[in-house]
Design a protein around this nucleic acid. Structure first.
Lengths: 109, 109
DNA sequence: CCGCTTGCTACTGTTTGGGTAGCATATCGC
DNA sequence: GCGATATGCTACCCAAACAGTAGCAAGCGG
C-alpha cells in the first residue's frame, strides 16, 4: 500500500525527513486535490469521485487509504470522509496557494 | 506535453479555476519536490537528479519543461535551473508545509 | 586532442492510474 | 416482506506514467 509516515524514508529521500514524506504523499495523483475538496466538510465516496471528474474508484480508494493511514482524513459521520484536525491544519497550510494561483492567472493571461 | 496554465482547464476540472490547474501541476510526481529542492538557489540537471535519488532524466526533463512553461522555474546562469520570481513566491506559499510536517512527525511517532 | 561536465533523448520494462462492471450492505418508502 | 436507491468498495483489463540504463552532442579546461 506504499505507506507514508513521517518517520519512514520517502520515495527519493533516505533521510526520513518529514517534509520529504509529505511531499511524496501529496505528490501522488489527486492527493492534493482530495484534501482541497474536503475543505467544506465531509463528502461521500461518490461525491468525491464526481468532484474529481470521475476518477476511478480504484485510485480514489487507494488515496483515501493512504491519507487515512497518514492521519489526514478519517471516516465521516455517519458516512463519507472528512478531514481530521490534523488534516484541517494541513489545509490551512495550503491556503496560501489559492492566492498565489490567482496572481499567477492574472500574470500569465 | 500536457501544458498547465491557469486559464486552461485542469485535469479533473472544467472550470479553469487557477487553483485546480495548480493542484494538477503540483500533483505530478516530483513537481512539489523540485520546487522545494530549488529553495537554496540554482541547481544543475544532474544535481537535481541526485537530490531526488536518481529520478529518471525522462521525468526530470518533463517536469522541468512543465514548470518552465508555467513560469515557475527558468534556466539558471550560466547553467542549471532556478526558481523565477513567481516561483520564489510559490515556494514561500509552500513553506508552512514544513512546520506542519514536523508537527505531524511528532504526533505520529 | 583528451577528459570531463553539461542538458537531454532513446529504448525497454515495471508501476501506476483509468475505465467499466459489479458486489455486499444499509436505508428508505410501501 | 419487496423493490428502489445509495453507500463503500473490489475485480478485471488496458493505457499512460514512470523507472532504469545507455548514450549522444555541445561546451570547456587542459
Amino acid at each position: 500500500m506504499a505507506r507514508v509516515r513521517p518517520g519512514l524514508p520517502a520515495r527519493g529521500s533516505k533521510s526520513g525527513r518529514p517534509i520529504m514524506a509529505l511531499l511524496d504523499l501529496l505528490g501522488r495523483r489527486w492527493a492534493l486535490r482530495l484534501v482541497w475538496e474536503l475543505r467544506e466538510g465531509s463528502q461521500t465516496f461518490r461525491a468525491l469521485q464526481e468532484r474529481c471528474s470521475g476518477l476511478s474508484p480504484t485510485v480514489l480508494n487507494r488515496r483515501l487509504s493512504e491519507l487515512r493511514e497518514a492521519g489526514i482524513i478519517a471516516r465521516g459521520e455517519p458516512t463519507g470522509y472528512a478531514l481530521t484536525a490534523e488534516g484541517s491544519e494541513l489545509l490551512a497550510a495550503l491556503t496560501p496557494l489559492r492566492g498565489w494561483a490567482e496572481r499567477w492567472a492574472r500574470r500569465s493571461s
